[in-house]
Design a protein around this nucleic acid. Sequence first.
DNA 1: GAGGCGTGGAA
DNA 2: TTTCCAAGCCT
Length: 351
Amino acid sequence: MRPDELSSALLAWYDRDRRILPWRYAPGLTADPYHVWLSEVMLQQTTVAAVIPYFLAFTHRWPRVEDLAAAPVDDVMAAWAGLGYYARARNLHACARLVAEWRGGRFPDDEAGLRQLPGIGEYTAAAIAAIAFGRRAVVVDGNVERVMARMFAVLEPLPAAKPRLKDLAASLTPGSRAGDYAQAVMDLGATLCTPRSPACGLCPWRPACRAQGLGIAETLPAKVAKAERPTRRGVAFWLMAPDGSVLLRRRPPKGLLGGMMEFPSTEWREAAWSLDEAAPVSPLAPKSWKLLPGLVTHTFTHFHLELAVAAGRTPAQAAVRGVWCPLDRLENQALPTLMRKVARHALAKAY
DNA sequence: GAGGCGTGGAA
DNA sequence: TTTCCAAGCCT
């Protein structure tokens, strides 16, 4: 099949089986660049199912990019809490401000302009240019890499194969219906050409797929093995004041959970901590610590974490770095999932 | 360019 | 339980 026959077959499949998603527009309607941008950033390394409720909440609370730009950054961080990769939320807010203040609320309409904005890399710039502005752009995400590796039976492992896979994607990208094609080829990877058990029997590209012909579709793309994740350990401090508020502090703006709130804790290291060793690290020294039974476990991209929780009552809201937060307002804080686990653990075991 | 950076669902 | 990994970006 020629490239134009392949793109036609894919678009026909897409027109027939198009998934309904909150950020997806019906044929003929022009997509809102703000919605396209917001959804694409949320979808970076994140599943559709996880994104949907966040997308609806953000667009309800901040209907236009100017509204998002006007919001305090911590409101945005708190609204993003639970979605992960928190640098995205900071970049999202910074990008909204740039677009609102310097561009009158209009996003750049080509890849080069989009690429200048924080949080918009090669993939996202191409996706917005195609979906929001109808420009031909070679959109290459993990789905497209997988589809191309199979279509052309690319045996070279990722990430070394990336340049070749992009060239192959470009060879199939049509000049018309740019946005539909971009979404179609990603949908193909997301729904049929899946990492495991691909549904080759339903695939519009099956007749042209070399890996399918060779019977090796499910084994592609090849990837270099990842290093295994170490385990780190720490002690988190659940400090409660007489009025029932607990002590939170903000993490440094960059790095792990950057800019998010946390319960104070020891360093996270490989060796386990004793309570005697951990206690001096606490920002406050209560009369006595109660080491709660059990551990909070959480897995990040690069390591596992086991957090013990030490609970203590302080005589007053001592002046320390951090904020005292009433229990009924913890939910509204920019607490990542790990710290919500700590709170749940403490509330279940401490009293 | 290789590693840091979250989370939850599926197998 | 463990492993994999999902519409990547940044340094």
